[in-house]
């Protein structure tokens, strides 16, 4: 499984993280879970994943800062999918401006996420 594609998932809702981890690992990916933006940045720097999934609103460091860190500090073009709650249209726009590739509004269907992940990692 060493050639499994690595995905960093930053999400402060541990139940959702767990669910997505199971779902995506079933598809053959390797999931690294971060509970907040700070952990996410550490994981990204350490493991250099193929894809990043991040929630926008997280404690300490927001998803927007994670995106900006990846694009501007690390100068990486790793695909990024952001999750946002309803009513955060403004945030989503900012996320795209900062270089996010795709977004999913919560609540979302895990199956749909899998489809989008596959498309970005093809």
């Amino acid at each position: 499984m060493s050639d499994a594609k690595k995905i960093v998932l930053a999400e402060d809702n541990s139940t959702l993280s767990l669910l997505l981890k199971f779902r995506l690992e079933k598809e053959g990916y390797k999931l690294l879970i971060a509970a907040d933006g700070k952990e996410a940045i550490e994981l990204i720097e350490q493991h250099d994943p193929e894809l990043i999934l991040t929630d926008i609103m997280m404690p300490f460091i927001s998803g927007l800062e994670v995106i900006s860190h990846v694009r501007n500090k690390l100068n990486k073009q790793t695909p990024i999918i952001v999750f946002s709650a309803a009513g955060q249209e403004e945030m989503v726009l900012k996320a795209f401006n900062l270089g996010a590739n795709d977004f999913m509004g919560k609540p979302f269907s895990p199956n749909e996420l899998v489809i989008r992940v596959k498309r970005l990692l093809r």
Binding site: N13, S14, T15, L16, K106, P107, F108, S109, P110, N111
Partner: peptide, 12 residues
């Protein structure tokens, strides 16, 4: 609830 609020579709 933590999960119910975040996902939709069959799983919900």
């Amino acid at each position: 609830l933590r999960l119910r609020n975040e996902i939709s579709g069959e799983m919900a």
